[in-house]
Nucleic acid binder design. Structure first.
Lengths: 247, 247
DNA sequence: CGGTGCCTTGAGTGCGCTCAATTAAAGTGG
DNA sequence: CCACTTTAATTGAGCGCACTCAAGGCACCG
């Protein structure tokens, strides 16, 4: 069990975007008993069909949820950045309906379900923050339905670039104006429901329009406003700007 | 306030798919103070940007969530059947990121947020069932991402027909083998991320393949297995078959 | 019985796909 | 540090699924 107080600092930061935590809750979260594990890129943190009894929190690196059709086509369902809890649904549901895999190498903190339940029961402000975490993740999934269902390739790509920019920045992982996209074009294709070839052409198209500048996997955007408009991006669905309200 | 014990019976039925409720919880749910309201088809129950202080439960009729792109294209994000709570996220989040509208005429029960919070605090088995309700809805949204992102028109359509069949049947609203699809082809297009014209052609194609038989909006499927296979449908993501476990 | 949605069908187009080859980058081991 | 392998990115050519535009048919309703 890790007792290093800094291990869960990203998690705390994430929660505090969503709700104010009482000092006692903050302290208790940092003392949640977890096992810290270094994981390679592509490591499965969860497989469809599993019945986990633990809850995984991403400490460093990036991860993604995925699901496959019977024909084997993959769709990436969400991207995860440090501080996010990956397994919350398994506090309440049994069998995993999707897989979770690391996008890059990184570290995860693994908590026992019973410890998390105890923490939730003991600290209402923590429970509230976790619920908002869950609700926001569901909101993002709905936005992806809209994005994939109703936006064309350029707009769809720009939208995901915007979302990632905002989320990464809110976790203090990068500044405004650009970031390293920790993802291959093939994976991006599975995020967007397109083919890798078309991802490549779409990135080039966005570059030709002056909306992004690329170097390897680093994406810079000279004008946030232009990229935002191209991606039809409105951060409301991320629910980061709502004053924390009393229960 | 309605005190008719049968008003919230569909809600109770829905919850009991997900978790066993203690008798006291069951009784308390049926006595939740709600305002029953008859609503016409197309009535908005929630608009993007609203900050609701109530929680709406669908008692009869069908409803759907929707969101529009800046260009005005609509995507339907979920379909709702009687017994489902439509507003759960607003117990924890402020501003609505999507709209909810009636698909048919029907009735809704409107509860005050504070009453629901009190009920959640008082009855852990209710709280557990509600959380599973929320988690399953999120799981369905993820399946829709996969469906829209990675399945072709015929398979995508068949998948939605299967999902709706299972959900409607679990609420006891119809038998196996068919149901009335309470939706225009234009709305179906917005469910699937396609055009109305292509929905029409896809329905005809499924019919030509012998997978469905149509009469107006009534869909019958001679062989559940065939439709299920065509739609690459696996009900795991609906989490209806999991034994209720202790906390 | 004439409106008014909704469904249906035809014809033509195009966005994104497939197949395939090349180039560039990132590992890997000697 | 360089040859070799592997993985990722890029580009070209051709195709097809789903789209657009447009007209006609059908059912329900006042």
């Amino acid at each position: 069990m890790s007792n290093d107080k800094s291990t869960l600092a990203p998690f705390l930061r994430k929660l505090e975007v969503f709700a104010e935590l009482k000092p006692a809750a903050r302290a208790a979260i940092l003392e949640l008993p977890v096992r810290l594990r270094a994981v390679e890129s592509s490591t499965f943190l969860l497989r469809e069909g599993d019945e986990p009894t633990t809850c995984t929190i991403l400490v460093s690196g990036y991860a993604f949820r995925q699901k496959r059709t019977g024909e084997g086509a993959r769709q990436i369902l969400s991207l995860h950045i440090p501080g996010e809890a990956l397994d919350l649904q398994h506090l309440y549901l049994g069998v995993a309906d999707h897989s979770i895999q690391m996008l890059s190498r990184g570290e995860v903190a693994i908590a026992q379900r019973k410890d998390l339940h105890a923490l939730l029961d003991a600290h209402p402000t923590f429970a509230r923050a976790m619920l908002r975490h869950v609700m926001v993740e569901a909101s993002i999934a709905r936005e992806w339905v809209l994005n994939i269902g109703r936006r064309d390739a350029k707009s769809r790509m720009a939208h995901v670039l915007c979302e990632f920019a905002v989320r990464v920045q809110s976790q203090g992982l990068t500044g405004a104006g650009g970031y390293e996209l920790p993802i291959t074009q093939e994976q991006m294709a599975d995020v967007l429901g397109m083919t890798p070839v078309h991802v490549n052409r779409t990135l080039k198209a966005l570059e030709a329009l002056g909306l992004i500048v690329r170097d390897r996997r680093t994406i810079n955007f000279p004008s946030w406003e232009k990229l935002r408009d191209a991606g039809d991006f409105n951060r409301r669905y991320l629910h980061m700007d709502e004053p924390v309200r009393a229960a």
